[in-house]
């Protein structure tokens, strides 16, 4: 039980980071981006690429399995992920935006997801890999609860990052502009907010968070080209559960989804675990489609 809660919160923290970006895209750009989870895959693999390409050592910090090289690699990976997101926006989404119904955008993102996943597969192969092959032993914190030092780091890091994003949206002019567009695009336009700039920053924030989430996922579990594909449903569930466009909601939604998924294993066979986010989603859509928290008008 305790173990399931701890594991659930950890996975939930990673889902939360991914869901922040997704909820922003759904709120501001107003379409469900199926390619968002693939940004996590891309980011995770870019960090791996940086590590192997430059032969960076994996000198670990204290009890952790990684050290500053991975942090550097993560920064580079975040940059590369943002670049990819902007490139896709430029080549695919922008030409379609406004010209066709927004479902076509959803469809295009569905195709883009397949593309990104398979480009990663082509570049890195399908094998499961790790940033560090060193196996970390878990520590028994109390009876029936074992955690790895990496997990604690990942959990705290994810929460700090989510907090930073929240402050950014609340306190900076740019964040306010993003929220304004999310609330009411026409009004925001009237008030002189440049939509192009807001769109760009949405991709920058979403892309870099996705990259970090991907790396953190890779640290605690492993790297595979399918990680994004498997996380897509939990991300959507978290974003909708938390109220589309609501960043705090996405974080809480992510933690909840992680917890429910993890606890479900106590009741139903673990083989069905991947379907749990879908069931939660269905329940939310039937019972409280607006999510637990107030979403933005874009998320109506």
């Amino acid at each position: 039980m305790l173990q399931a809660i701890a594991d659930g919160l950890l996975t939930g923290a990673i889902i939360a980071l991914g869901a922040i970006g997704l909820t922003l895209t759904m709120g501001i750009l107003r379409f469900a981006n199926f390619a968002h989870a693939e940004m996590m895959t891309w980011g995770a693999y870019m960090a791996l690429g940086v590590l192997t390409l430059f032969g960076l050592p994996t000198a670990p910090f204290g009890p952790l399995t990684f050290g500053w090289p991975l942090l550097v690699a993560t920064l580079v990976a975040a940059g590369l992920t943002v670049a990819l997101a902007l490139l896709i926006d430029r080549l695919v989404f922008r030409p379609l935006r406004g010209r066709v119904g927004h479902l076509t955008l959803v469809f295009a993102s569905f195709g883009v997801a397949l593309l990104v996943r398979n480009v990663v597969l082509l570049m890195f192969g399908g094998r499961a890999t790790y940033y560090s092959n060193e196996l970390q032993m878990s520590v028994e914190v109390m009876d029936g609860l074992r955690v790895m030092p990496d997990q604690i780091f990942v959990f705290c890091f994810a929460l700090v990052l989510a907090g930073a994003v929240y402050l950014f949206l609340q306190k900076t002019p740019l964040g306010l502009a993003m929220r304004a567009v999310s609330e009411n695009p026409s009004l925001a336009g009237v008030c002189g907010i440049r939509l192009g700039k807001v769109v760009m920053w949405t991709w920058i924030v979403g892309g870099s968070l996705a990259a970090v989430a991907g790396v953190l996922y890779g640290v605690t579990v492993q790297l595979r080209p399918e990680i994004g594909f498997h996380l897509l449903l939990p991300l959507f569930a978290a974003a909708i559960l938390g109220g589309v466009g609501n960043v705090v909601g996405a974080v809480i939604g992510g933690l909840l989804i992680g917890l429910i998924e993890s606890l479900s294993v106590l009741v139903i066979p673990s083989g069905y675990k991947l379907a749990i986010p879908f069931l939660v989603l269905l329940v939310v859509l039937f019972v409280r489609p607006s999510g637990l928290f107030r979403g933005t008008s874009g998320g109506r």
């Binding site: 379409f31 469900a32 199926f34 959803v106 569905f110 959507f236 859509l285």
Partner: peptide, 10 residues
Amino acid sequence: EEYLAIATFG
């Protein structure tokens, strides 16, 4: 509209 897309994916 896109909730249908997400649900069918699920």
